[in-house]
């Protein structure tokens, strides 16, 4: 394995071309990302969600409790189950 001077020259060229290309591509990633964010912000901003005050449902159960129960039912039933009513069982 003897080093070849022309190979070393080619390797130096690759160093220059390779690093410039990687910087160029990532610079374009940065620039295109910034432009994309501006365009999306301008033309398709996310609808502002109105926060409702937590209130109790007709059954008297707090919304966060209903959400927790619904999430558990969805997980356990693999998305097939649905919560229609919640009743407290007296012991």
């Amino acid at each position: 394995m003897d080093p070849n001077s022309s190979d070393i020259g080619d390797a130096l060229v690759l160093l220059g071309v390779g690093m410039i290309t990687v910087f160029l591509i990532l610079a374009l990633v940065v620039i295109s990302g910034s432009i994309l964010v501006r365009i999306v912000n301008k033309y398709a901003p996310e609808p502002v969600k109105k926060l409702k005050r937590a209130s109790r449902s007709a059954s008297g159960t707090a919304p966060e409790v209903i959400a927790a129960i619904a999430a558990v039912v969805e997980t356990v039933t693999g998305g097939h189950g649905k919560v229609e009513s919640i009743k407290k069982i007296e012991h």
């Binding site: 070849n4 070393i8 940065v30």
Partner: peptide, 20 residues
């Protein structure tokens, strides 16, 4: 993201060393 470019320098420096 630029720093992801700088960290590729090892690829090309070792390329030169390996040729040597």
């Amino acid at each position: 993201a630029f720093f992801g470019a700088a960290a590729q320098i090892g690829i090309f420096t070792v390329l030169i060393s390996a040729v040597a």
